[in-house]
Amino acid sequence: MSNPILTAAMINKIDHCSSKFPVDQKRSALLMALRVVQDEYGWLSEQAIDAVADHLSLPRIYAYEVVEFYSLYRRKKPGKHVIKVCNSISCYLCASQDLIHLCEKKLGIKLGETTPCGRFTLEETECIAACAGAPAILVNDAVYHEEVTATKLDQILHGLTTNEVPND
């Protein structure tokens, strides 16, 4: 039976997450299952959240509870690439505010906004454990770039535009 939201590949991944927990504790897989779907669509629509809860045979409210709580979940479609600048203490001491302003200038948007072309969303993040590499940037909630200078930022943005992510 095909599900319009959950593809077979996604269901595979979700079931792999479920297999890590006791059979009567499917709720434990919820956090990772939601992430599987978000990684595919970029965000979590109501239909997506419902589909995950239904697949795990959980009351849908369980899924909404965690989606509203954990900061990596998105309820709005972001740009193709999400650029997060760390603004916690170690990065702050290493001029993360300047880096944020530089990102705003280069992308022509303010924090929290998405470029009109839909390519980039700019946000700040709390500490990502890259403190000895401050200031740091997290791309798409997964790729770390440390000791980011103006030149390096250009390379990162250029790399994303041409789909060639530079190695850190």
Binding site: S88, S90, E126, C127, A130, C131
Partner: peptide
């Protein structure tokens, strides 16, 4: 996640 901490990573 404690700000300043980058060791377990």
């Amino acid at each position: 996640g404690e700000p300043g901490t980058s060791k377990d990573r």
